[in-house]
Design a protein around this nucleic acid. Structure first.
Lengths: 211, 211
DNA sequence: CAAAATCTCTACCGACAAGTAAAGTTGGGT
DNA sequence: ACCCAACTTTACTTGTCGGTAGAGATTTTG
């Protein structure tokens, strides 16, 4: 039994009091649903409060404003993603399998039920430094993780290795989103296989190319 | 005394009448600057009018609303991009050079002075069907062009070829943007070389993989 | 040179959403 | 059972921005 049950569409539990942590978690969850569905701008604080079965001031007792609420989600999922990618890479000895694991981690993140990736990869809030920083942090976290693994193997200097890493992460991210949009598509495993093979074969061209 | 000579402080041409087409073009240019700099939401119609040295009602005599103005730019640059990619592919006989030309076209587009790519690749307007359609059209236009070239060469079925094409386009697009952000970086040509090599070597792994 | 048509500007309206103050309500401690 | 404290809610304020009406200027035409 989930004591912090979500109020999806109706609000049967309006008025019930929750411990502070549970309430905060519930608000975050509701906010995520609304932000994912509508984007930052179209998401109204009223919508979020309604979704949580709560009124607006309650929201403002837990978060100082809309931006902070958004940032809390963004940072959580950003670091989450970076962790998953790092784990995937570090828990595999072989470099080829590392690439596959990294691509797999990206796909898994995109395939999550809560669609958290839309916050990180499709944020519609621009010009806000804190947001750009959070997104940049997630992005460069993944890139650095891949770049480290690639540098040694491909025998490239840091700058070029990083560009390759950017390519691999971008490739995974974009294809993962496309794969998700294409409903009746091939299985996730096969998509990951295709992409990691593409990446690996591509990388294989480089040591001899440079040295 | 009552000279309205204040005109020349910011916008020297304030008050000057222009033929309809010229005015429209100027407005589009101003709008692009503002949309690129601030994104859709933060761009105010007043800003655009000011930037064009014109007042707001003039804007509304040429475009029925903010959305239509935005769409006009989006569609123009979207089709422009697709054309460039198609040209790049079709004007090269060799498949390897086709890949390089396609990647080069993406980089060129991103490297344009007016930064039009930010409208197509970083649009912060979501939920508006017309916008999603325009972006989708640009995206799929590029993808299809690449997919056609890839299908024959790699001996893959349509679905997998398309996924690969998505990967190549995504790879180019993401790395191009990253390359642009990294000021003191390697030259565009070398970046294009790196990426198209990565793509080509990666693709080379596929005919034998499947057949 | 004068008058009208046309273009442009200043000033305004209304909608919408973030954030808040004060009233109302519920539950826990004694 | 009662009262206090914390939690919730209703209802409001405020600021911003898309869009518009009517006044003012300028070029063209008779």
């Amino acid at each position: 039994m989930t004591e912090t049950a979500q109020q999806s569409t109706d609000q049967p539990n309006r008025g019930v009091r929750l411990p502070r942590d549970a309430r905060r978690a519930q608000l975050l969850s509701a906010a995520q649903d609304v932000f994912v569905a509508n984007g930052y701008h179209a998401a109204a604080m009223d919508d979020i409060a309604d979704r949580a079965g709560v009124s607006k001031p309650v929201l403002y007792q837990h978060f100082p404003g809309k931006l902070e609420l958004y940032l809390a989600l963004l940072e959580t999922h950003g670091t989450e993603l970076v962790s998953r990618v790092r784990e995937a890479i570090e828990s595999n000895p072989d470099n080829k399998q590392r690439v596959r694991a990294a691509v797999g981690a990206l796909y898994e993140f995109v395939d999550r039920e809560d669609q958290a990736f839309r916050l990180v990869f499709e944020s519609d809030l621009r010009g806000e430094p804190a947001v750009e920083r959070a997104v940049e942090q997630a992005s460069s976290g993944c890139i650095d993780a891949v770049a480290e693994a690639v540098t040694a193997d491909a025998g490239l200097d840091h700058e070029r290795a990083r560009l390759l890493a950017v390519g691999l992460v971008g490739l995974s991210q974009v294809t993962a989103r496309d794969w998700l949009d294409t409903e009746n598509s091939i299985s996730r495993d096969e998509a990951v296989n295709l992409m990691s093979t593409l990446a690996w074969k591509g990388l294989a061209g480089f040591p001899m190319q440079q040295g």
